[in-house]
Write a protein that binds this DNA or RNA. Structure first.
Lengths: 121, 121
DNA sequence: GCAATAGCTTACCAAAAAGTAGGGTTGAAA
DNA sequence: TTTCAACCCTACTTTTTGGTAAGCTATTGC
């Protein structure tokens, strides 16, 4: 068993899953991968069904694990932006693969996501 | 929202996660990716901490989703082998990426998995 | 002045995922 | 003939995860 930060993993795959598992994490990473920098509200509105609680939780964990960074733009009206960190960017091939694999899988099942994307909003 | 098999997904990434999410699935796929064909017991013994319940559940789902195949070798003494299906094999780049990313991440944290692999059994 | 928007947090509750413990068949080995 | 190993399944409980709803600060727009 591999021990890291009070958690145990059976192998490197298991360890990686510890960071990118979680219902919304890859979706957030994917979104930031596409659009570079986004505010809290933009991320929220792009993830249909996410609750405020879940979102801020996941954002915090992603930040803690150094996959994203949070820039505080202004304090007086409190405004922020989230961007991928270097480690987060290193996951780009993963995010892209998962997305493409999904598109391909959906296509096999009669759903042309790229073409009909506007329908799935 | 994308609808498929009575489940809804927000995007292709979400859909993919529906198949490879779950605590043990990528670990099973990773193991089969490394060793091509394996029996139930071999898989079980390679996943420290997995319960029989979890294992058979995940194997069933992977089979249902056409990511692995189960060959019944003999019936009288009931013996089987599990192998990756074509769709399962198409996930190879994913599995490898996740593994390498994990190794690299661990290394940054002072754990040389490849070198010390024998210690983590 | 009052509502609305951004950006959260917290308490509480429900649902889903995972763990525990046991059972059960078949057949080969001791 | 007792035991062991492969290959599971099922009922029950616990843990984890996720959802709901409310609240809080601060600023901008009407």
């Amino acid at each position: 068993m591999i021990k890291l930060n009070n958690k145990t993993y059976t192998c490197p795959v298991d360890a990686t899953l510890g960071f990118i598992g979680g219902k919304w994490k890859l979706l957030v990473l994917s979104y930031l991968h596409q659009f570079t920098k986004k505010s809290y509200t933009e991320i929220r509105d792009n993830l249909p069904g996410v609750s405020e609680k879940m979102l801020s939780q996941q954002l915090k964990e992603l930040e803690r694990d150094n996959l994203i960074e949070k820039n505080i733009l202004t304090l007086k009206p409190y405004r922020v932006e989230y961007i991928l960190s270097k480690d987060g960017e290193s996951l780009a091939p993963l995010v892209e693969f998962i997305s493409k694999w999904g598109v391909s899988y959906l296509k096999k099942n009669g759903i042309d996501y790229l073409k009909d994307q506007h329908l799935y909003k």
